[in-house]
Design a protein around this nucleic acid. Structure first.
Lengths: 109, 109
DNA sequence: GACTTATATAAGCAACTGATTATATTATCT
DNA sequence: AGATAATATAATCAGTTGCTTATATAAGTC
């Protein structure tokens, strides 16, 4: 697979509303699956499967802590992804409002 | 449509081998459709339809000169696309080798 | 060990995408 | 006007994608 094909494949991962949102969130801080599910208002399997794609491309890494699995951004090997991420609108407010009404999610302590 | 959704939509245009190759070529210089067809070794309708998508997103602009329609890059409005394009491998050699055996294509003068 | 919570995986499906083939349009040349 | 070359559009189709529902695994709690 030549360089351009590989680049197109990697860009496909960003070219999806849900995955780009996940990456935008992880840009702020690491998050566990259930937090992402709550914020993006979708189902858990949906997020899990998107995370798997991002992980197998090496764009995120996971760390289990207790029953929670935390995902964080991992863009050192993907400079052009990093370049794009500079332009993704911040999710800071979204994350703060989550903290505010953090009743349903136990993992945010 | 929120910002992230729009960004994902635009990134979809780059997330395709053929379209990314077209953009990489146009990064070097403007090209007419038949040149792109010859270089990328695909069919004319295929290229035409990809160019239409790129055009309707404003990423390329067209200029008819005689029977040929020349396309050129137009990324002023899309900073993050421009950022990605910095990382796309150059097509300079490909374009020069085209010039070398430019027999079938009449438009390159 | 039984129950609950968090996450992952699998199967199924509707919607979308990229390519091909066929046809239409536009311009040039005689 | 007729023939040719360049490009655009339309129809079709196989392959892919993202989501949902159902189920499995893993960790924590009682």
């Amino acid at each position: 697979m030549d360089d351009i094909t590989k680049m197109a494949e990697t860009l496909k991962l960003l070219a999806d509303r849900t995955r780009l949102s996940i990456l935008a969130l992880l840009k702020e801080r690491e998050l566990c699956v259930c937090e992402i599910v709550e914020i993006l208002e979708t189902t858990q399997p949906n997020i899990s499967q998107h995370l798997r794609k991002l992980k197998s491309a090496g764009l995120v890494s996971e760390a289990r802590r207790g029953q929670w699995v935390y995902y964080s951004l991992c863009l050192d090997e993907a400079p052009y992804i990093q370049a794009v991420m500079e332009y993704v609108p911040s999710s800071k407010e979204t994350l703060e409002s989550l903290k505010a009404d953090c009743v349903t999610v136990e993992c945010c302590e």
